[in-house]
Design a protein around this nucleic acid. Sequence first.
DNA 1: GAATGTTATGTTATATTATAACATTTCCAT
DNA 2: ATGGAAATGTTATAATATAACATAACATTC
Lengths: 165, 165
Amino acid sequence: MGKTVSKAKIFKKPGHDHGRCIKSALDMAQSLCAARGARLTELRRRVLELVWASHRPIGAYDLLDKLKAERHNAAPPTVYRALEFLIELGLVHRIESLNAYMGCSGPDAGHSSQFLICRDCGSAAEINDARIDAAINNLSQDAGFSVHHHSIEVEGRCPDCRSTR
Amino acid sequence: MGKTVSKAKIFKKPGHDHGRCIKSALDMAQSLCAARGARLTELRRRVLELVWASHRPIGAYDLLDKLKAERHNAAPPTVYRALEFLIELGLVHRIESLNAYMGCSGPDAGHSSQFLICRDCGSAAEINDARIDAAINNLSQDAGFSVHHHSIEVEGRCPDCRSTR
DNA sequence: GAATGTTATGTTATATTATAACATTTCCAT
DNA sequence: ATGGAAATGTTATAATATAACATAACATTC
């Protein structure tokens, strides 16, 4: 069916319609909050929108700078509290290896965090591999370990950066 | 062959002979450095020993405190530089989710970093699951992503903490 | 629709983690 | 012994994150 494609579309192409990514994320957030009885305030919504400004993880203080442009009184707790709320709901993931934050592309799925991160351009793509989940669950069980959450961060080079050189 | 054991011995038991863990780690470091022409100085060796003081990841400043007890002039760069060296050689892993450091139990294996981390007692166990590696390599290839390094951190409860309550 | 409790945000200060930059010392090959 | 490289010392500061308390917004009940 159609042309044979060997590369799964995990990384977004530079020219994609990013407005749709943002809208979709905000819509999902809206309904998820409604379902959970959580309050998606103007501030929280705006922080989520800023996190979604690109497909690159963004640092809390970069976020704060953007926020300050529109809210003179934004301070670290402003952004950290919003992030905490969004992470709690699974709308945002923290990228541990970068101390940065990234919108979740599928908040419905399990609360694990799996990313491919390009060391050249900084873009990241969320993955959700059942084999990995299965292996982690299996080996954890063998070890007598009960899993609460897991985070996988794969550092390397994305297709675009590889083709560029 | 002996009694049937369903739990792999991944987490160390409280009463194990930890002296041997330390000795083994220092010996491996010694030979690895010799093989690579790297200098395992007194300071670096001592930092490695301190990292191996337990099976819990330790923070850089906790390490610094310990070091200060014996080297009055130890400062942050002292410990960070030693850690950098040890990480470079694969003798120590950084636990991203804790901003902490942990001795590597098998510096020979690939340079990936996979841990089960107990949220109750803070102890961590290194794993090295071929299925996970395979899945990551496979999905990365499908995505056109070239892997440089990966880090997996599974948070949960270790066997001891689970049996305690 | 006023009183009340709860949740969210504002505000200030500070803790924690990590690195920059330059000086000095140590090591080792000649 | 000496010159160059690597390691360590030293001081200062950057970057990330949280504590603690004050105020404001919201939502529920009367």
